[in-house]
Design a protein around this nucleic acid. Structure first.
Lengths: 164, 164
DNA sequence: TGAAGATTGTTAACGACTGGAATAATTCTC
DNA sequence: GAGAATTATTCCAGTCGTTAACAATCTTCA
């Protein structure tokens, strides 16, 4: 094989390019890491939200992370089957299934957070504390300017025109 | 509705979180923008690569952007049907279909680049030139440290354990 | 009070997207 | 010249997520 290595010069280091490159890399690595505890990002997010607001309805937490009701069902089904969360009846409203973390769920969440922490460390490995702070500030500024996801992480598999 | 707005504090502004949030946002917006010229990111990438190295085989450029052969077929099929690229026989190797841009393909590519430029502008809108440079430097440092995609943009829909 | 209209959780059907295996035609290695 | 490797392609199967429809339950308000 000639192996002439096609020159990537065409794809210059524009900020947009770097951002998506690094961002996607970060997402993927995290997905790989979190898989070690049999979780995937959406599941981990739901777990976090349930912990943040126990007793809420499926749709309430679904709305908080921009997940449609029909999708929440499958997500919670899995979490419940694995004994990480419970669906309890809501005395006040019998349509609602209030979500609660089980002891096992708390453990899984703790492990997940530990992994998230390690991920953070690995990702910022080559950066000094000062660099890290600068980067956080700059990115936060972008988030504010762009009014990106009002506090909600987009996740990789939402929206339609993604395709990338 | 109670609308108590579940507190997102659980998802602190870790660098990893910010990076994927902003990165994914950047990818999505670009996908939306590029759709204006009937292209999607993978198609645009192929177009760029063909331009960067005309006459290469499908698999050669596929390898350069980490797209499996079977997928390249569909990608090139579409590009060819729309008259943006041509598959020409390779005199030296009759198995190979060398790819070339058509005049129309060049125009589409030019428009795509224009859009990419606008995207860059919009994305960095709130940043000063100095901020922008700092950000590029920091991100580039991360790319180098992490040995992220050896010059290749990952794209949003590759790898398996993505899921996010 | 009671009927119409919302809302919650679920299921089912459908479509978009991909990668991997198998195949035919060619080329390369010895 | 035989067998291994390579290129492009087709096919198939699996993953995922969205929309629509539905039953049960609540709310509204005449």
């Amino acid at each position: 094989m000639t192996e002439e290595r096609i020159n990537g010069d065409r794809a210059p280091s524009t900020l947009a390019f770097l951002l998506s490159q690094v961002g996607i890399h970060a997402s993927r690595r995290f997905a790989e890491r979190i898989a070690a505890v049999e979780l995937n990002p959406p599941l981990f997010r739901v777990l976090n939200l349930v912990d943040a607001a126990e007793g809420r309805s499926q749709q309430a937490i679904g709305a908080a992370i921009d997940v449609p009701p029909s999708r929440m069902v499958a997500l919670v089904d899995e979490l419940e089957q694995r004994g990480l969360v419970e669906r309890r009846p809501n005395p006040g409203d019998r349509r609602v299934r209030a979500l609660y973390l089980t002891a096992k769920g708390r453990k899984a969440l703790a492990r997940g957070r530990q992994i998230a922490h390690e991920h953070e460390e690995a990702l910022t490995h080559g950066l000094s504390a000062a660099d890290r702070k600068r980067l956080v500030d700059l990115l936060q500024k972008m988030v504010d300017e762009q009014a990106i996801g009002k506090g909600v992480h987009p996740g990789l598999s939402d929206a339609k025109p993604l395709r990338n």
